[in-house]
Design a binder for these strands. Structure first.
Lengths: 265, 265
DNA sequence: ATAATAGTGTCTCTCAGACAATATCGC
DNA sequence: GCGATATTGTCTGAGAGACACTATTAT
């Protein structure tokens, strides 16, 4: 290791290109509820590899300050940038799922993908066309995937993202991030039922909300949209924006029974 | 984009070094139970940056087939290799936590760290000295960190790894991976109490085990070690190796009450 | 009024935790 | 036997889900 260098000298001499590096991508599963289904935004691949197939929106992390592209300060920033490029809006919720990396998942090189999932309400959205993604489209989720053929190992990324979402829904309030700022409890319950794919008991559900300070009522405000609808009007609630971290419910919903987390059965 | 290339032609022409890339490291929080405490294995840094400080064991992913180092087929392989280089054994449990990446966490370059945590029983261990890590040592966990000063943002990596471990212990059987192959229920209960830092009700704990098929008794076999000990001998159990995935308990242990997941408070 | 939807009251059954009782060991 | 540890038995309170009931709206 030669003589003793100071940290300054060491950093000056350090060559970042001394070793071969993997490519680093950020890929996002952007979810929304549309037509009573959970849907994910996919883009059709315009170039090789997997040309013509669908894939999760994403791209390389921008680490070159002198490059022509906007610089990414962090992984989260890269995810937010990709998300914004694809949808033109910011997501209500964004969370890292996990990282995939091996020698063969991309035929070009050893590639690593940091997978994220994002939640948005479908009304807040304007699909941006152009850029590298030739076409972007919502695809309904069936079970743990989509019917379309996905490139790379994005089928796995998507499956794990859906799993994470479903599991997290049971003990947090993030489902509210799939709805507009203001919503009713029947609407929210409906989102839960779509995500969990089973009936949610009414009383237990409302008790959960009451006992939490995550989802708070807007006293006296009723849902006036969909004026043609019959029946009693529902009270409006909103997702509590303060205390970002405590979107946790005191206890889990549905399926206290076994195999809640089992991968198969 | 020029004329239409076939995928083969495209791949032949593709230049992996066309864009600048971040460095990719794998860092591992290796946990064990020693002296009635949760402990993590740290190495003292021999070179810059953060020379002389402690850090999580780890290193760059080896993606160069022609290099002098062993090639890593995947991220998990890289983690297993680092783990083996450091401890000389394979861990009983290894799980990816999450990935950290930004422009400044390593003064040399934009660096990304994939964080893992590993569980092992302290008896199965032989610390390997040498290589780039000049010194390796167990450090007791207090609250969500260690007393030693850590380089990089490893304090955050460690904190998140501990959080993941503690949270996962409540609904899985991974705590058994901190004990030898065969163990008694009082021993396992003790591990839970060390990890969760609170008393675990005896009857509930044993009911959980009974109802699960994750931890199974070795009928008629008693713990004969520590022969000087008073009192009734405990039955031996083992961690069920088949069905790797279903190390989940039907329900959670302790703290059904609020703030189970809160970050602070 | 009636049907439809929203929201509330109440009962029951299950289960986690408390605590007591029993079993088995070394001495 | 005695103290220590392991294991099992029983009771009770809390809470989730079932279900019936009330409230409010459009037609």
């Amino acid at each position: 290791m030669g003589r003793d260098l100071s940290e300054q000298e060491f950093l000056k001499k350090f060559d970042p290109e001394q070793y071969k590096k993997p490519a680093v991508m950020v890929d996002i599963s952007i979810f929304t509820i549309k037509d009573d289904r959970l849907q994910v935004l996919l883009v059709r691949r315009g170039g090789h590899p997997f040309k013509g197939m669908w894939s999760l929106p994403g791209g390389a992390v921008h680490v070159d300050r002198s490059g022509k592209y906007s610089f990414d300060e962090s992984l989260d920033d890269a995810a937010k940038r990709e998300l914004y490029e694809e949808t033109g809006v910011e997501a209500r919720y964004l969370e890292q799922v996990m990282t995939y990396g091996d020698a063969t998942r991309d035929p070009r090189q050893w590639t690593l993908s940091v997978s994220y999932f994002a939640l948005m309400d479908s009304s807040s959205l304007m699909l941006q066309h152009g850029s590298d993604a030739s076409e972007a489209k919502w695809h309904a989720i069936h079970d743990y995937g989509v019917r379309a053929k996905l490139g790379f190992d994005h089928k796995d990324l998507l499956k794990d993202a859906i799993r994470r979402l479903r599991s997290k829904v049971e003990y947090t309030a993030i489902a509210a991030c799939l709805l507009p700022q203001m919503f009713t409890l029947p609407q929210l319950k409906h989102v839960y039922e779509i995500l969990l794919q089973e009936a949610v008991p009414n009383k237990s559900f409302r008790r959960r909300i009451e006992d939490s300070d995550i989802i708070v009522p807007l006293p006296g405000q009723y849902d006036e949209s969909d004026s043609g609808k019959k029946g009693r009007k529902a009270l409006l609630y909103r997702y509590n924006p303060k205390k970002e971290q405590s979107l946790f419910f005191p206890r889990s919903i549905v399926r206290a029974e076994a195999e809640r987390h089992g991968t198969k059965k």
